[in-house]
Design a binder for these strands. Structure first.
Length: 752
DNA sequence: AGCACGCCGACT
DNA sequence: GTCGGCGTGCTC
């Protein structure tokens, strides 16, 4: 019977059907090289093999299979399919991000393709010839060689002793463990004394005895709670552990349990948190079972890890960023998502716009594995799932050791202005505290969540910002027509001439970034050594490391930065943390603003926690009574969650509804607007008021393309898969029209 | 994503 | 009169 294969190519296209050459040994999930178009050769994934002849005029043939086993098993394929369906993209787009680049070469000719194919690193292995296993003969030989050929003598001795001390070796010894040069080994081979084999390097997986950290009673009981949830059949557990409570120790115990049972474990961490220190710590405990997988590794390394894992038989610990989700862990038992609230888990710049935390939960369900989501400040989505009983909840609210929570002071910026106690962006309280810190020879960190200009309007005197009357968001300043617009409902108003709050100040599109703060600090404290940490100064891993190292070793006194300063470092001498303007966190044009503000301020505040004395945190704001400020000061996550969840429910935002954002782009503005109008009509016909838009985003022209956005709200209870189905249909019907074929559409499911 | 086909400006 | 710009449509 004729065989055909539906093949997924790394394109935003559905699968293409090729004929399978007679007698070609190929199975689903395997990678193949196929010609596409006139001369291009792509790596494709065989998705399905069947006997139905497609009615295309020209059917090309798959003739070459890559690798000796499938890159994807059935469960991985099921996950890709789930992703393509859920995130409204093609399997090809999943393929582009799920497989490391060099595992799927492409080229403009057979030759070019072949040149780009992955070749495993090989290594020379040396073994003594069987004739030398006779001890007497070996000693005779060695005696002769020791005088006449000292290098050959040394090489043989090294091979013989590499395994089993002074006994005569029977196994192969990798060249890198020998000090012998190639010529010496070649000479020995020629004499028939040694056999040399070149082959793929094998990773030795020595047995290690895991040295697990001892747990405090609080940690132990939390671990028991997690186990209890799993035993009761819960797939997912949210571990809510405050800063410094030692969540990592719990992870280590859970990881060890899974590894001991022969299972694989995936530890997901935000990209920036994958440091040499974390890897080193895990390697100290789990030895060679640890595989790091993230963007800083070379392409060859990532491919090597991927291929190695396809033939592993369990007991693997992969530590990686979001793309590690796609590794072929065939015995997956546990996924740990650390800092599960971190926005870095969401891919925002390209399709598929997936959230690795959510995909992890789904994958664990498909694979009958378990997931632990850990955070000091869980996302409201996860927390609501825990409250609703969908996830188990384990809480760890005791700090490790004697560490005390920081003392949070709220400084009222409006009052400071009235009393003439504000210099540029600093209130008196913060200035005094900074002066004290410097006088005591301690360190301080200053947090400002902005680098450049500010896309909103602010009163120059009191810091008031304009907000939408219908949505709980800040209005976005539109430079083009000097008006204020709500990013969510489309509401528009003019910029007030005078500040409605203090009646004194002038309202201008303003704001300030870290650079300005650094400059002002230098003027206010000329003797202090100041450093700045943001995307502008931390241009590379090394530059980043250098700034951190100088601060850690006391070569700088003040560190100004964006959220980069919040990530996982423990600076022993930091006794003060200043948050310069909490308002732009609280009133960001985003329904998650309050949640984010709480998370960010709590994380920053956590940097001030020292081992011996409690650190201090100063929050500057014009709204000292804002519930989120009070909740941060009290360290009361539950209160924040309660109020925010109530608001989300009232406004039908996640987790009480799902959002899908549609973005249309086109160079011709009129054409774009016509397409947007047509889509608006069609969407409202099917979704009614749940479809909002079109809205012009704050930046409504990028790279000569105009942009409009729609937001679709699907309330919980409604079938999300049905909604996606209807949406796909609407999109196909409206944007599929000839007139609009050149309008580019992108979908973002669960946008950040 | 790439690449060929095709219709309008600046050049030997 | 051609070379080449990139808009448009197609690739199993």
């Amino acid at each position: 019977m004729e065989r055909y294969a539906d093949i997924v190519l790394p394109l935003a296209q559905p699968a293409y059907t090729y004929a399978v050459a007679d007698g070609l040994d190929v199975e689903e999930g395997q990678a193949v090289a196929v010609q596409f178009g006139a001369r291009r050769i792509y790596t494709g994934i065989v998705w399905r093999i069947h006997g139905r002849r497609p009615d295309f005029p020209r059917i090309k043939t798959v003739s070459r299979v890559l690798y000796d086993r499938p890159l994807l098993d059935a469960r991985q394929r099921a996950l890709w399919e789930w992703m393509a369906d859920y995130y409204l993209c093609t399997l090809g787009e999943v393929m582009r991000f799920a497989l490391p680049q060099t595992i799927k070469p492409s080229g403009n000719s057979e030759q070019e393709f072949a040149d780009r194919e992955y070749r495993p690193r090989t290594e020379l292995y040396a073994a003594l010839d069987a004739s030398l296993h006779d001890e007497e003969r070996f000693h005779d030989l060695m005696e002769r060689l020791s005088r006449r050929a000292p290098r050959q003598y040394a090489a043989l001795l090294a091979i013989a002793s590499a395994e089993g001390g002074d006994r005569i070796s029977t196994g192969e010894v990798p060249r890198r463990l020998l000090e012998a040069d190639a010529a010496t080994l070649a000479a020995l081979q020629k004499k028939g004394l040694v056999t040399l084999t070149r082959r793929e390097r094998s990773v030795e997986r020595g047995c290690v005895r895991f040295q697990l950290p001892t747990l405090t009673p609080a940690q132990q009981s939390c671990l028991d709670t997690i186990r209890g949830h799993f035993d009761a059949g819960r797939r997912t557990v949210l571990l809510h552990g405050i800063t410094g409570s030692g969540k990592t120790e719990l992870y280590i115990h859970l990881i060890a349990e899974a590894l001991v049972r022969g299972g694989d474990v995936l530890l997901l961490v935000p990209e920036i948190a994958i440091t040499a220190q974390l890897i080193a710590r895990l390697e100290r405990i789990f030895g060679s079972r640890v595989t790091a997988y993230h963007s800083k590794l070379t392409l060859a390394r990532r491919t090597e890890s991927y291929l190695r894992l396809t033939r592993s038989d369990g007991g693997e610990l992969v530590v990686g960023a979001r793309s590690a989700l796609f590794l072929p862990l065939r015995h997956l038992q546990l996924i740990v998502v650390d800092e599960e609230h971190d926005t870095g888990y969401k891919q925002t710049d390209a399709q598929p716009r997936y959230n690795a935390r959510d995909v992890a939960v789904v994958m664990a369900r498909l694979r009958e594995a378990r997931t632990v989501l850990g955070s000091a400040t869980p996302s409201l989505e996860s927390y609501a799932n825990a409250l609703g009983g969908k996830y188990g909840l384990a809480t760890l609210d005791e700090r490790y050791g004697d560490a005390r929570p920081p003392l949070v002071l709220v400084s009222d910026t409006l009052r400071a202005v009235k009393r003439n106690e504000r210099k540029t962006h600093f209130n008196r309280l913060l200035l005094d505290k900074l002066a004290d810190v410097l006088a005591r020879g301690e360190q301080a960190m200053l947090f400002q969540n902005r680098r450049g200009f500010a896309p909103y309007v602010e009163c120059r005197a009191c810091g008031w910002t304009a907000r939408c009357p219908r949505c709980n968001v800040t209005l976005t300043y539109h430079k083009r027509d000097h008006r204020l617009q709500c990013h969510y409902c489309g509401h528009v108003e003019t910029v007030p001439v005078r500040c409605p709050a203090c009646r004194a100040g002038e309202v201008t599109p303003a704001g300030f970034g870290t650079e300005k703060v650094e400059e002002e600090l230098a003027r206010l404290f000329p003797a202090a050594r100041i450093e700045r940490l943001d995307r502008d100064t931390a241009t590379s891993e090394r530059a980043y490391r250098a700034i951190i190292d100088r601060f850690e070793s006391g070569q700088s006194d003040l560190l100004v930065g964006t959220q980069m300063i919040t990530k996982g470092f423990d600076f022993a001498r930091v006794s003060l943390v200043g948050i310069l303007n909490a308002d732009n966190l609280l009133f960001a044009p985003d329904f998650r603003a309050a949640e984010r503000a709480f998370q960010l301020m709590t994380q920053v505040a956590g940097r001030a926690g020292r081992r011996d004395a409690a650190g201090e945190v100063v929050i500057q704001t014009t709204e000292p009574e804002h519930p989120v400020i009070r909740q941060v000061a009290a360290g009361d996550y539950e209160a924040m969650a309660r109020t925010q969840l109530a608001e989300r429910r009232a406004f039908a935002y996640p987790p009480y509804a799902r959002l899908i954002r549609l973005t249309l782009r086109q160079r011709d503005r009129d054409l774009l607007y016509r397409a947007s109008a047509a889509l608006a009509v069609a969407l409202r016909g099917r979704f009614g008021r749940r479809a909002m838009g079109p809205v012009a985003p704050p930046v409504d022209r990028i790279r000569e393309e105009y942009i409009t956005e729609f937001l679709l709200k699907i309330e919980s209870g409604a079938s999300a898969s049905r909604a996606r189905e209807v949406l796909r249909e609407v999109l196909r019907q409206t944007l599929g029209a000839k007139e609009f074929q050149t309008v580019t559409l992108s979908c973002d499911v669960d946008p950040q």
